[in-house]
Design a protein around this nucleic acid. Structure first.
Lengths: 323, 323
DNA sequence: TTGTAGGCGTTATCAA
DNA sequence: TTGATAACGCCTACAA
């Protein structure tokens, strides 16, 4: 392994001169710099990240934590994160699973963005307490070293309910996510508020944000079916589960059973009829999260930010008045 | 930042004793170990990865390189990689983009798995030459430090062609991937061989493995449409593009136009009619790749491995004899 | 402008 | 069984 010491020897200078030259310090003549660069090239020198990190106490790497690697859901979000980070001289690594949590306390990464329900609040707070900077996307946590970028769940859920309402639906189900899910709870709260305001009796079915749980919910809804029925799935994934189930029945989506989701995942566009859903820019979400993190890293104070949502109409919801 | 030095001071022992105790060496009495552990706990000691890496010259981290973070395609593969790695005491990080290539030469990771067309052969060979261990999934590269885990593209493409053939199709198109794609070229080669063997004239349309290029190909095929026409898309993504296009025409998939893909992506199951395609275990692919890499890392020699494929029939291909 | 030297936190060798 | 000490590769006062 060739180090700056080897370069120094070969170039006939001291190691500090080599270090300065390599780091573009103005303390060395252009002449010696060129000589040193030439030798470095010749020796195929590559800096050692561990050594530098040990000294500088930073890695210029940000970790993004995901619950699992499945699902196309995160593609755009990661892209948004990566773009911002790269542009500011940082690298992104994507991690999943308990083992990789060690990156944070062990200083393998300078900061983290968390979208991982299996990462406990307690652990996160512990790292924040150690001085690590963290941005969370899937919970609220009050600590000076933790920032959140919210999704406007309330607005989204309200939009969805309004869409059903305006299309004449009064018999409405809501399929929720896991009890521990922040997003699910936020959305559900807005649904309940809407129901109260409109004196509506919304039937709640518990799901787990997965296709399978969507199918199960569909079965339950099918058993007590009365025309016409509308369903607000608190995420698109479960809505796809409903599609799968009703495909096997004689109920037609958008006609006998009306469905709206949340997230606007890629699939929503490709299943038919097109799933009505709530959309938001995942890329912007990621970009904003990284910007916040970088600001914290440079010692600036940050406000909590919010991502706005909009309704995507779809043929999965039919109008009752037109029939 | 608390180091073993602090522990040593507080516990009234030397740093080497602390190091031994922490690493479970049998060279210290159980008594002193307990004492040291207690002090470490009290001081909230966390080992410093950079320092350890500097010394041991390994990070116990493997990098997996992807062209981009989009697409649900890689979920299972990553899961397979992660499981094997974690079980052997390694961590996985997922990377994308040129910047992160530095992890390899700078020793931030111990080895890499590459499924990233933007990573040039030349660069990969350079790192291999430096002694880095690499497993490639998207090309062939001959170097003792590089191993490949092949997909059985030839078998898959042949299966697909046979399926069309057995259903009576004789007017067949093939939509290819990018010219530089190893997988595309392998599959295409098998298609041509099949064509030759059956004295068939397969029309080739160039695609880029994306939905958009699938739509473009569909347009071209539509213009010269003669019933009945079958299309082998060299990946599912493009097949979905064809679906999108033909949805806007009066040609019905599985009846007027017959489509088979390759990869069995999640979407293939959810679009209708169900896309016929070629399936293989992405999880196994990932698992095998990591096993190979770990073997190389421990100095063992490895053979190149192969992943087998199978046909998934689908209503996207109709039988000509039944009509 | 360049060189000397100390230290970042570990591991590991050698003495004691 | 423990301790002193020398690396690992790099950065950066401070000296020259």
């Amino acid at each position: 392994m060739v180090s700056i010491k080897d370069i120094a020897k070969k170039a006939g200078v001291s190691i500090s001169t080599v270090s300065y030259a390599l780091n573009g310090s103005p303390k060395v003549t252009e002449e010696t710099r060129q000589k040193i660069l030439a030798v470095a090239e010749e020796l195929k020198y590559v800096p050692n990240a561990a050594a530098r990190t040990l000294k500088t106490r930073e890695t210029k790497v940000i970790g993004l934590y995901l619950t699992d690697f499945g699902g196309a859901f995160y593609g755009d979000l990661l892209q948004g994160v990566k773009e911002v980070l790269n542009q500011k001289g940082y690298d992104l690594i994507v991690c999943s699973g308990k083992r990789s949590h060690r990156f944070l306390p062990e200083r393998t990464i300078d900061g983290a963005i968390v979208l991982d329900a299996t990462f406990s609040d307690k652990e996160l707070l512990k790292y924040a307490e150690m001085g690590k900077k963290i941005v969370v996307l899937d919970r609220e946590l009050d600590h000076p070293n933790i920032n959140h970028v919210f999704l406007d769940n309330k607005a989204g859920a309200t939009l969805a309910m309004e869409y059903l309402w305006e299309n004449g639906h009064r018999r409405i189900y809501v399929v929720t996510g896991p009890k521990a899910s922040y997003d699910s709870n936020q959305r559900l709260k807005a649904v309940r508020q809407f129901a109260e305001r409109h004196e509506l009796d919304v039937k709640e079915v518990e799901g787990r944000f997965t296709k399978e749980s969507g199918e199960l919910a569909a079965e339950r809804i099918f058993q007590e079916y009365e025309e016409p029925t509308a369903v607000f799935c608190l995420n698109d994934e479960m809505a796809v589960g409903l599609y799968m189930f009703f495909r096997k029945t004689d109920l037609v989506i958008g006609r006998h059973i009306h469905i709206i989701g949340f997230d606007n995942i890629e699939l929503a566009e490709y299943i038919s009829p097109r799933l009505a859903t709530i959309d938001y820019s995942k890329r912007k979400w990621g970009a904003l999260a990284s910007e916040q993190l970088l600001k914290m890293l440079s010692g600036k104070s940050v406000e909590h930010e919010r991502i706005y949502v909009k309704l995507i109409p779809g043929e999965s919801v039919g109008s009752l008045s037109n029939r």
